[in-house]
Computed example of a mutant assay.
Amino acid sequence: MIADSFSADKTKEIFSQKYPQAKFFKKKFNGYGEQRTIPLLYIYSYGDSQPQNITVI
């Protein structure tokens, strides 16, 4: 799972090629804590109890 704050460095393209199974979220950056919450909310909402990685960019 990747939470990106609209970076301009082709993050989505890079991760999509290397990790096509990854879920990708874009959210305005309002601090690291809030940015980390997006993938965690997804995990708890949809029952993915064993995510491989959570990356905050």
Rank of each mutant, 00 (worst) to 15 (best):
I2G: 02
I2Y: 08
A3S: 15
A3D: 04
A3G: 08
A3R: 01
D4S: 10
S5C: 12
S5K: 09
S5W: 06
F6C: 05
A8Y: 10
A8H: 11
D9H: 06
T11E: 03
T11Y: 01
K12A: 04
S16M: 02
Q17K: 10
Q17W: 04
K18G: 00
K18I: 05
K18P: 00
Y19C: 00
Y19T: 00
Y19G: 04
Q21M: 06
Q21C: 01
A22N: 02
A22H: 00
K23F: 07
K23R: 10
F25C: 02
K27E: 07
K28W: 07
F29Q: 03
F29C: 01
N30G: 13
G33Y: 10
R36Y: 11
T37R: 14
T37N: 14
T37S: 14
T37Y: 13
I38W: 07
P39N: 08
P39Q: 08
Y42E: 11
Y42S: 10
I43F: 15
I43L: 15
Y44I: 14
S45Y: 13
S45G: 11
S45N: 15
Y46I: 09
G47T: 12
G47N: 11
D48N: 14
S49F: 13
S49W: 13
Q50V: 13
P51N: 07
P51D: 01
P51I: 07
Q52S: 12
I54S: 01
I54F: 03
T55V: 13
V56F: 03
V56Q: 03
